[in-house]
Design a protein around this nucleic acid. Structure first.
Length: 973
DNA sequence: TCGCACGCCTAC
DNA sequence: TAAGGTAGGCGTGCGA
């Protein structure tokens, strides 16, 4: 075990005596006398299967224990299981395989065995059995350990102890404090060859920037940058320059061993920086480099890894294990926890820190490296910032608190939280609870390849679409699925098999028959462990929230807030675990029972609200349920008054709650007024939780909250909803739409507003149909494979002009490429395929002839001819001269104005001059902004950030200025 | 032109 | 051997 003391010293504990094991159910008639025979047979089979192994004893022990399978309700409270203990953790799988396939035991014959808990990772097994959770405090009591004489690690303290002597503290009171982790944040720069993304096979590592911080402290204790070749000094950072790359690598290794960090962070370090360093060291034959972990003489190895789940998508990465140190890649963490349209460090920093970062294209890096100590200094400043930003993000998003709390709540090691999925967390809790109750978990194989089997989910009530000018009250079930599981005692161990119902002679008052037809016993017979887990999670959350209210210390608050969040997420994922057909322990009887109760409850609620709250019960109006999804109903009580709607909402929630089994509870939460219901899962409204003033505008499912719409659509719809719902200014909204459309068609749109992004969810060849982002990714791969988007990335694109009838997938293009080559975009596409339908959906309910008014007015006719000045296809067209006044083409090369505009020379000349001046000013302003972002006003801007809006505007201004200057030159004859 | 499958993303 | 669930809207391409 690795850890850190309260004083900040690293510890390695060599824990002795804990052995890997699993269970099988004992066959009828096997008694203690049969065990030796069984053991020798199994031992022989193991030896046969591992002929090359030098191991003497595979099976170290077999004992008969009294346990119960967690699967299905049983009257008998315990029966015999064999606990099979093996010599090494890796032997569990082989041994399990032999037993599952079947072995022939003398006198008993050929038998197959179902194994239990044979898929539990050894580390987790150890933690569960010793009551240790990720990130908690451990005591090695004085007198029970000895100082290691033969040092295996580089840790400051190293001790030997027997596992049974370890004392684990629950993370409460003084033990909820966070440890003073040492955190190393780093970033590397590599000098790629011209036009190539750096590859460790060819390209050197030229700089490594580092930031070392102690968790909870404001200032970093180390801030330095290691450079290849000289580098001018940087204020506030140590610059360490070296003549050879080998020295740079070794300097970094030395830093890591000296600092001895508990956590290593960075941006994309798992997929890029760490593997690059290791592969580069290999290439340079720096054999001593990859010893960065806490185990002496143990080398790092790289393994290709890929993670795929429906929730997180396919993510390919590399697995580098650094013993004793947690790797926390900010990219991974942010991809898992936040849905953003771009995950570049630049865009993420802008989003969370309000701070842009200079983005230097990899092709420029080599030039900076090959310059002088000043240009290398520039690069170093940039590199330092890339090491500094991940630390800022870690602090701002409170990742250490949230992840440590998640580890404590679920019991898994911190490293699992980024490397593994949701199910390991539930499994860990399930195993712990099972152990307390003497249950064992069967190792079931997922039925049928790919699962296939599925079950009916929740009801979504039909949406009575429209614009509602009366308050709409929302009634919600609090934690619906967890409360159903608790209310009806749904669990593996309470599920009654059809054939057992009669066998056990269970009376109707002892069981619950769920709406899906499954039967579970009531708690009086057997309390379910899932309900027990959920009760504890929700009670703990209540406590955490109460403590949070009391807490004054910001660090304590952070811990508690992280905890309540972890508890909520954990409670909600228990249901999903039971329904995961390709998971560890699926049980569709549980999950389909949960949803069937849910469906019944939402229907019941709708019926009750409408039956009770109407004029025949002496209410002033008839209530109407206009929509509802899974655990909520939207009620129009009929009153025009917000306060009254809230009162009715509370009354209804209370009345209806009383009709449900505890702890199921319907709550009144909020009122929407006004409310625009577009369809199922799509609506917008002003949200009120108190009668005085609305809280905010809330939108669900519509373009404003979707990542696959361009900013133009997002901004326009947001603005329109603002004008409609908040300002109540429909003509204003209409005018705004008209202006925007006119700007679009006149080519006055920033490219950054037109960028659409979509995720690449599978490898290129796995797609069945042709789509814009997939085809573009493929084209980009052909241009430059190293920088093209790959699986899991988001692909930004714009739609460009092309032949009539061209498919969208033929018209998608990389925004940078469009900018660099001056390719004209297709405004009509944006109008017809991006703007029109979302606009009509929100305007149709409130405006007669919305389509005619918005999409076919005079504003749609002011179309400008987009003539790219250079590049693109137009490069080959004969350059045409047009009139500086009205833009009609003119034949005479040296003319400026056409016949009609002649005589307006003075005025038009003035206009051209003014235009150049304005553009110069605009460009200057944007340039300064970019300079500020890169942290210096005295150097050229290098930034080429794909997702910085300023960048696009600066580029556009630069181009427009160039064109305006050309126009001006024409007057100089 | 229309229905359908695919793909993406969201609500809960 | 690693992977929480279903419902549902909507854009797009494709073939009937």
């Amino acid at each position: 075990m690795f850890g850190v003391t309260q004083e900040g010293n690293s510890v390695c504990g060599n824990v002795h005596g804990f052995e890997p094991y699993f269970y099988i159910s004992c066959l009828d008639g096997i008694g203690p006398d049969d065990v030796p025979k069984f053991r020798s047979t199994l031992e022989t089979r193991m030896r046969e299967a591992n002929r090359n192994s030098k191991t003497q004893n595979f099976i170290t022990k077999i004992e008969i224990v009294q346990k119960r399978s967690v699967m299905y309700y049983q009257v008998q409270k315990a029966r015999s299981f064999l606990k099979i203990v093996v010599a090494l953790p890796t032997m569990v799988a082989g041994c399990r395989g032999i037993l599952e396939k079947g072995i022939n035991i003398d006198g008993i014959g050929q038998r197959c065995f179902l194994t239990y808990e044979s898929n539990v990772l050894f580390a987790l097994r150890f933690m569960i059995d010793c009551d240790i959770v990720g990130g908690n405090w451990i005591e090695l009591p004085a007198g029970n350990y000895c100082k290691s004489t033969r040092r295996l690690s580089y840790c400051q303290l190293e001790l030997d102890i027997h596992y049974s002597k370890i004392v684990s503290y629950a993370p409460v009171g003084q033990y909820s404090k966070m440890a003073p982790f040492r955190i190393l944040s780093f970033d590397i720069e590599c000098a790629g060859r011209k036009g190539h993304f750096p590859e460790p096979e060819h390209d050197p590592v030229i700089q490594i920037a580092n930031l070392v911080t102690v968790q909870g402290e404001q200032r970093p204790m180390v801030k330095n940058v290691m450079t290849l070749k000289s580098c001018s000094p940087i204020v506030g950072a140590d610059v360490m320059s070296f003549d050879t790359e080998k020295e740079v690598l070794l300097a970094w290794r030395e830093l890591v061993t000296e600092v001895d960090p508990d956590i290593i962070i960075g941006y994309n370090i798992c997929k890029f920086d760490l593997p690059y360093l290791i592969e580069r060291a290999q290439k340079l034959n720096v054999v001593e480099f990859p010893m960065l972990g806490r185990i002496r003489n143990s080398r790092l190895r790289i393994k290709d890894a890929s993670f795929s789940s429906r929730q997180y998508g396919i993510r390919e990465s590399k697995e580098v294990t650094i013993e004793g140190r947690v790797q926390f890649d900010l990219l991974q963490a942010i991809q898992r926890d936040y849905k953003l349209s771009s995950y570049s460090l630049n865009s993420v920093s802008a989003h969370f820190l309000g701070e842009q970062k200079e983005d230097v294209h990899h092709s420029i890096i080599s030039d900076l490296q090959n310059g002088n100590s000043e240009t290398r200094r520039r690069l170093a400043v940039y590199c330092l910032k890339d090491a500094y930003l991940p630390q800022r993000l870690l602090d701002k998003l409170m990742f250490v608190y949230n992840y440590v709390e998640m580890a404590r709540v679920t019991g898994v090691p911190i490293s699992f939280l980024l490397a593994r999925g949701q199910s390991i967390k539930v499994l860990s809790q399930l195993l712990r609870k099972s152990k307390q109750r003497n249950f064992v978990l069967p190792n079931v194989k997922s039925q049928g390849a790919g699962g296939g089997e599925t079950f009916e989910g929740a009801t979504v009530l039909d949406a009575k679409a429209g614009y509602y000018d009366k308050p709409i009250a929302t009634l919600d079930f609090a934690s619906l699925y967890p409360s159903i599981m608790m209310a009806y005692n749904l669990c593996y161990c309470t599920l009654v098999r059809a054939e057992d119902l009669q066998k056990f002679m269970l009376g109707p008052e002892e069981v619950t028959k769920t709406p899906s037809g499954d039967v579970f016993v009531k708690p009086s017979l057997e309390k379910g462990i899932l309900p027990e887990i959920l009760e504890e999670l929700l009670a703990a959350r209540k406590r955490a929230k109460a403590d949070l209210k009391e807490a004054t210390d910001p660090l304590e608050k952070a811990v508690l807030d992280g905890r309540q969040l972890a508890l909520k997420v954990s409670a909600n994922s228990v249901y999903g675990f039971t329904g995961a057909t390709v998971g560890q322990l699926p049980c569709l009887e549980i999950s389909s029972s949960v949803t069937s109760f849910g469906r019944q409850m939402i229907d019941h609620t709708k019926k009750l609200v409408q039956e009770r709250f109407n004029t025949s019960n002496s209410y002033s109006y008839d209530a109407e349920v206009i929509y509802g999804d899974t655990d909520s109903v939207m009620v129009q009580f009929g009153t025009p008054d917000v306060d009254e709607a809230m009162k009715l909402g509370r009354e209804a929630a209370q009345q209806i709650s009383a009709t449900f089994t505890k702890p199921i509870k319907l709550e009144f939460e909020k009122v929407y007024w006004p409310y625009l219901l577009i369809s199922k899962k799509r609506y917008a409204g002003l949200l009120w939780t108190k009668p005085e003033k609305y809280d905010k505008m809330d939108t669900k499912g519509i373009e404003t909250v979707r990542r696959d719409n361009c900013l133009l659509v997002k901004n326009l719809i947001t603005e329109c909803l603002h004008k409609i719902l908040i300002d109540r200014d429909i003509p204003g909204a209409v005018q705004y739409v008209k202006n925007t459309i006119s700007d679009l068609l006149m080519n006055r749109m920033d490219l950054s507003l037109l960028v659409i992004t979509k995720g690449l969810t599978k490898a290129g060849d796995a797609y069945e149909s042709k789509t814009a982002h997939v085809e573009l990714a493929e084209r980009m791969r052909k241009r430059d494979a190293a920088t093209a988007p790959t699986v899991g990335d988001r692909v930004p694109y714009v739609i460009i002009k092309a032949a009539k009838g061209a498919k969208a997938y033929e018209k998608s293009e990389d925004p940078i490429y469009v900018l660099e080559n001056n390719i004209p975009i297709d405004p009509q596409y944006y109008l017809e395929n991006q703007l029109s339908k979302p606009l009509l959906r929100i305007f149709d309910p409130i405006l007669k002839n919305a389509s005619k008014e918005l999409l076919h007015g005079s504003h749609t006719r002011s179309v400008s001819i987009s003539t790219p000045s250079n590049g693109g296809i137009m490069k080959f067209a004969k350059k045409r001269v047009s009139c500086a006044g009205c833009r009609t083409p003119i034949s005479e090369e040296n003319q400026i104005l056409c016949k009609h505009c002649q005589g307006r020379e003075a005025e038009l000349y003035q206009k051209t001059v003014a235009n150049v001046r304005d553009l110069e000013q605009l460009f200057g302003r944007l340039w300064t902004q970019c300079q500020r972002c890169q942290g210096s006003l005295h150097q050229d801007v290098l930034c080429t950030s794909r997702d910085c809006p300023i960048f696009y505007r600066r580029k556009k201004a630069q181009k427009d200025l160039g064109e305006a200057e050309l126009q001006l030159e024409r007057w100089d004859f």
